[in-house]
């Protein structure tokens, strides 16, 4: 088994890519830990705790720059935190074997994002639903890559909330941020621009992870010698990822996202099949 310094060094690029793609880091970390021989439930629990650091690190700069929509994040936080508590509780009770296949299947849903959203879409013309209007969820930000201000409205807030409950459920169950699923819900249901979706997703993941971590603390699955280096490494990576995101084009981010998710699905299916 590797030592803490090697784990710390491995997790730096993981944090960077997690922040750039909106995956949140743990979607990459959990399969990586399983590959390195860590039991899957322990990997999930430690992944969940370490993404609080990853997401908080990158969200700090997104929020300051005004890209993440704090109101949308708070509203959706109601649904994701409730889902995460239920998901983490399920994980402590089911067979580890199932978790490999759930993980791969859940990652596969993230491809919906790249199929359904136009590659260079930067504006949103959706008409706000009554709940979004009542909660004043609309917003805007300055896009450095396009050198212009992007204003947007929010639609289907309650339906989006239902989608975020499922995202929270998967996040708590698999020890990940479920960033890709959250981004899919925000882009396709709430009609948020891609960068607002990615950054707001990062912001929500912190709340989701906190809810899930409390369940894993009770279950005794949090290993200090894993969590320490993972949190330090992924946060350093996420710090740099947060600074690079607004300078990259959406097409580049999507290509990176596609490659990484494909690799992770194959790895988890392989691990699941070989454990049968």
């Amino acid at each position: 088994m590797i030592d803490m310094v090697s784990l710390l060094l491995i997790t730096v690029p993981v944090g960077l890519v997690g922040a750039l793609t909106g995956l949140g880091g743990a979607s990459i970390l959990v399969p990586l830990l399983v590959f390195l021989g860590i039991p899957v439930k322990e990997a999930i629990a430690c992944g969940m705790a370490s993404i609080i650091a990853t997401c908080s690190g990158s969200a700090a700069s997104y929020v300051r720059e005004g890209i993440a929509n704090v109101r949308v994040a708070m509203f959706l936080g109601i649904f994701t935190t409730a889902g995460a508590i239920l998901g983490a509780t399920i994980t402590t009770k089911i067979s580890p074997l199932l978790l490999y296949f759930f993980f791969a299947a859940f990652l596969a849903t993230s491809f919906l994002r790249s199929k359904r959203t136009p590659p260079e879409s930067t504006t949103s013309s959706a008409w706000p639903d009554p709940v979004s209007r009542w909660l004043n969820l609309q917003g805007g930000y300055f896009d450095e890559a396009y050198q212009r201000r992007i204003d947007y409205r929010v639609n289907h807030a309650l339906l989006g909330g239902g989608g975020m409950f499922l995202a929270g459920l998967a996040a708590g169950m698999l020890g990940i941020g479920a960033g890709a699923f959250k981004v899919t819900v925000q882009e396709n249901i709430l009609k948020l621009p891609p960068k607002v979706s990615s950054t707001t997703s990062n912001f929500i993941i912190g709340m989701t992870a906190l809810a899930g971590t409390s369940v894993y603390l009770y279950s005794g699955l949090l290993n200090l010698t894993l969590m320490g280096p993972m949190a330090v490494g992924t946060t350093i990576g996420a710090f740099f990822g947060g600074r690079m995101l607004n300078k990259l084009r959406n097409r580049t981010l999507r290509a990176l996202f596609f490659l990484i998710v494909s690799f992770l699905i194959v790895q988890m299916i392989y691990k699941g099949v070989s454990s049968l």
Partner: peptide
């Protein structure tokens, strides 16, 4: 018309949250 007051760079809540996040993460990493 879109009102975007809540998303302007540097609003009080956003700056406050940003400081809490950054200082919490730095302290825990140290």
């Amino acid at each position: 018309m879109i009102s975007s007051h809540q998303n302007q760079k540097g609003s009080k809540l956003e700056v406050g949250i940003s400081y809490v996040l950054a200082s919490g993460v730095v302290a825990s990493l140290v």
